[in-house]
Design a protein around this nucleic acid. Structure first.
Length: 278
DNA sequence: AATGGACTCAACCGCCGCGGC
DNA sequence: GGCCGCGGCGGTTGAGTCCAT
């Protein structure tokens, strides 16, 4: 059986696109819109595979593509997003208007990766979670099996998903012995509006740290991933409009991750031993 | 000026998830 | 539920370019 290739390879052009091909593709998409990539070459009169047309359009011909060097600000943002998301190039590109995933991937592989490797010299005794997340295990020269073991033992964010509301447990609250701490003893979650995240949770009038949650749909988003050390989901707070990424927090296992409006604050689930934290 | 290694980046490949049937 | 087509993604390749010698 097996899946048929996306296109018949016979008689199709490969390699660099010519100006004429670009013109034909652009004109066709302007007239008929994107999509139907498989049929597009035939209809447009191009001797190209549909995938090739799609790639050419998305990475090069689209009118909103930003040309030119990556600015310092963009570079900073890429580094921050990569630290957060790993090699999720399309997600990273989504935060950089006019830049394509391919461009960012290339930029990372040719420039930023090296730059960061230089600034963070590897040390066998001092492994850095974020630097490990920067490269897939395979490209770090590990075998498949070693890569699998590596994947299990390190923090690797998989398939981040965007959320607008999360519950962030308070480390102080969590450090209370569970058996002596009935759910009623958990301070009420405080909604933090106009949130400005820092590494410190908000404090109450007595100066004690509180558990809290936030809702900042317009200012930024949260990304959840997986901490394979602890088999728990993690959430990174604060990817704000200016690209700041402020902190990672674990999401308590079993807690509802509030991707929609059906927010349920499960107080019991906040009673997690702080030893569980990464 | 010639050459060869390093670098860049557009393009390709293979895989995956999703939706339709 | 399984198959299949399609779009999308990340990893890799290789032609072209740059640069040091």
């Amino acid at each position: 059986m097996g899946r048929s290739p996306c296109c018949s390879k016979e008689g199709l052009n490969r390699g660099a696109w010519t100006a004429l091909e670009d013109k034909i593709l652009t004109a066709y998409i302007k007239a008929h819109g994107e999509g139907q990539w498989r049929n597009l070459p035939k209809r447009a009169g191009l001797k190209r595979c549909g995938k090739s047309c799609r790639l050419r359009w998305l990475n090069y011909l689209r009118p909103d593509i930003k040309r030119g060097n990556i600015s310092h600000d963009e570079e900073e943002l890429i580094i921050r997003l990569h630290k957060l998301l790993g090699n999720r190039w399309s997600l990273i590109a989504g935060r950089l208007p006019g830049r394509t995933d391919n461009e960012i991937k290339n930029y990372w592989n040719t420039t930023l990766g090296k730059k960061i490797a230089k600034s963070q010299p590897s040390s066998a005794s001092q492994e850095n979670k974020s630097s490990l997340a920067e490269q897939p295990a395979k490209t770090r020269g590990l075998s498949d099996s070693a890569a699998a073991a590596d994947h299990r033992s390190k923090l690797i964010r998989t398939r981040a998903s965007r959320c607008t509301r999360v519950v962030i447990p308070n480390p102080v609250t969590l450090s209370l012995p569970i058996e002596n701490t009935p759910a009623t003893a958990v301070p009420p979650l405080r909604r933090v509006d106009h949130l400005h995240f820092t590494n410190q949770p908000p404090k109450n009038s007595d100066g004690d740290e509180e558990a809290y949650y936030s809702e900042v749909p317009d200012q930024g988003h949260y990304y959840k991933g997986t901490d394979h050390d602890h088999e728990v989901e993690t959430v990174t707070t604060g990817i704000f409009g200016n690209g700041d990424i402020l902190n990672d927090w674990p999401v308590v296992p079993g807690i509802n991750f509030l991707e929609d409006d059906d927010a349920i604050l499960d107080l019991d689930s906040l009673l997690l031993d702080s030893d569980e934290w990464p």
